[in-house]
Design a protein around this nucleic acid. Structure first.
Lengths: 169, 169
DNA sequence: CGCAAGGTTGAAGCGCATCAATGTAAGTGG
DNA sequence: CCACTTACATTGATGCGCTTCAACCTTGCG
């Protein structure tokens, strides 16, 4: 959150994600977490986990791998916010979510449909845009037959063209 | 680098910095490194370092602390690119550099002057702006007596006002 | 000298923000 | 059941911040 009331969303957490690897090593929380859907979560004791990390090499490797992915995605987001257009940012956000859901088997493979509980203002806050502009872009995406959103579900109608818009091959 | 030739700078490395913590745990390099100044560097053998990390708890803690800071700065950059104006981005970039240099004792404390080898196109690529606009903003900063740049050195003339522009208290 | 890289400046244009009106659907209390 | 509210989405008009383009200037360098 910024002092002027605007906010920037850093990431969307999906089932199985940890909020962030950083808090294991730094006491100060540096961001807020908010639930969009119903959520099941568990707390981890920092001290215990750190000891476990040091004793259990496999755990250690897996945490660091997760953190590496986190870092990679953050860097990608920096590039997106710094150098991409509104269309690209929104399309990439959607495709990234779809990809991560796909890894979890959460895509109807027949229809390329995913749960999509995000409101447009979430998309806006994640892409550095305004809700109004997000609405216009999404409407345009729909009009050109790229995607469809209705009833908290999103379908990628034309994956090839949509990936082209997102500059993702 | 993007396909259209534009690029996004993720961070500036100062003396003593590691390029990134991520490569220790992931083989694929995910970004490029370029030197602006003359540089002294050393290579670290991934495998060796990983073993050392697991045997030497202090090293382990220190790497993770470094990585935590990296993560924090990346997240801050995301906020800056997503939600801040050109003036704010540029001022924050400069103040962040000054702060990091200060930790290294690399600020002339009398004059608040730092080495500043960056070209305007570096600032542009780090802030998601164009060199032309960077020039205009810097000229305006100078004109209002906030900073001064000449001869590869930058002086923060009015720290209080400048921090206000950067929205940093 | 001639050239390349960087910086400055102004004019014009575009992408997104802002503002405002309208619509819609779900929830709430009378 | 209906008035009312609240949250969200859509749409159009207008404006602004930054980009783009282009000309010109400076500096360093082979």
């Amino acid at each position: 959150m910024l002092s002027d009331g605007s906010r920037q969303i850093l990431s969307f957490l999906l089932p199985g994600d940890i909020v962030s690897a950083a808090p294991f090593f730094d006491v100060r929380p540096h961001c807020l977490v908010e639930a969009i859907t119903d959520v099941r979560y568990r707390n981890i004791k920092r001290a215990e986990f750190r000891t476990a990390l040091f004793t259990n090499r496999d755990l250690f490797e897996r945490l660091l791998k997760t953190w590496t992915k986190e870092t990679l995605r953050a860097d990608q987001l920096i590039v997106d916010l710094g150098r991409r257009t509104a269309d690209e940012r929104i399309a990439r956000l959607i495709l990234n979510l779809a990809e991560r859901l796909s890894e979890r088997g959460m895509v109807q493979s027949a229809t390329m449909e995913i749960d999509f509980p995000l409101r447009q203002h979430h998309i806006a806050d994640a892409t550095g845009l305004t809700p109004v502009h997000v609405s216009k872009v999404l409407t345009e995406f729909r009009r050109s037959g790229l995607i469809n959103i209705s009833d908290r579900a999103l379908t990628i109608v034309d994956p090839v063209a949509f990936r082209r818009v997102a500059q993702m091959r």
